[in-house]
Structure formats: C-alpha cells, structure tokens
C-alpha cells in the first residue's frame, strides 16, 4: 500500500469525511509529510471505492455545491490494520535488534592490496 493511500484510509478511521477534510486530516496525521493534491485524492478515492475499501456515506449541498462524505468499510478497516501490522513488524526488525559493530569504509590502499 502506498503512503498516500495509507493516510487516506487512516484519515477515515475516526469517521466519514468529505474531500477537503480528508486532505487536512492526512496532512495532520503525517505531520505535514503527505500533502494530497485534489487530483491525487480523487484518483485514490476512485480506486479505493472500486476495491471496496471506501464507500460513499452521505451527500449534501453546501453553498450550492455538492459535498460527498466517504467512510471506511469493514474491508478497508481490515486492510488498513493489516498494513499497519506489516509496517510494525518491518519496523521491529530494525528496532528490536541491538546495533552490531559498524562497518568502516576501506581506504584506497586496503582495497587494492
């Protein structure tokens, strides 16, 4: 799962949100690292809706414009948790092992000897 997709799903974990709210929430959750562009968000929402991870929850008209809210499905929630688990296990490979002796670069003489 790519990072923007992960943060779009993570943004919806607390409840349904509309387009701009997803962008803001993903920005907050990633500490400003994932700044979704509008086009990227809707491409991701199309794909996630087709995969059954996200569903349209409500539609309302605000200031004459349609505003749709999207929510996480059970499948989406399971996929997000599985991805978080995978990343945690991958992180443990590094954090749980005590650092060994550090490798130093060989000098020109040592390499050619």
């Amino acid at each position: 799962m790519r990072e923007p997709t992960y943060f779009v799903l993570a943004a919806l974990l607390a409840g349904p949100l509309h387009g701009y709210a997803i962008i803001k929430r993903a920005d907050e959750l990633s500490n400003g690292r994932v700044r979704l562009a509008t086009g990227t968000l809707y491409t991701a929402l199309d794909r996630l809706t087709a995969e059954g991870y996200v569903a349209l929850v409500s539609e309302q008209v605000v200031s004459g414009r349609i505003r749709r809210s999207y929510g996480l499905t059970d499948e989406g929630s399971a996929a997000l948790r599985a991805e978080a688990q995978r990343m945690a296990e991958a992180a443990r490979l590094v954090t749980d092992v005590a650092p060994g002796p550090r490798t130093t670069r060989l000098g020109r003489k040592a390499r050619t000897a």
Partner: peptide, 13 residues
C-alpha cells in the same frame, strides 16, 4: 458525476 465536488475541494484547498 464528480466535477462540482472536485471544484469545491480544489477551491477549499
């Protein structure tokens, strides 16, 4: 289908 929604999000963003 989605034009108005994308415009609204883009204007807010």
């Amino acid at each position: 289908d989605r034009g108005e929604e994308i415009i609204a999000t883009l204007l807010e963003a």
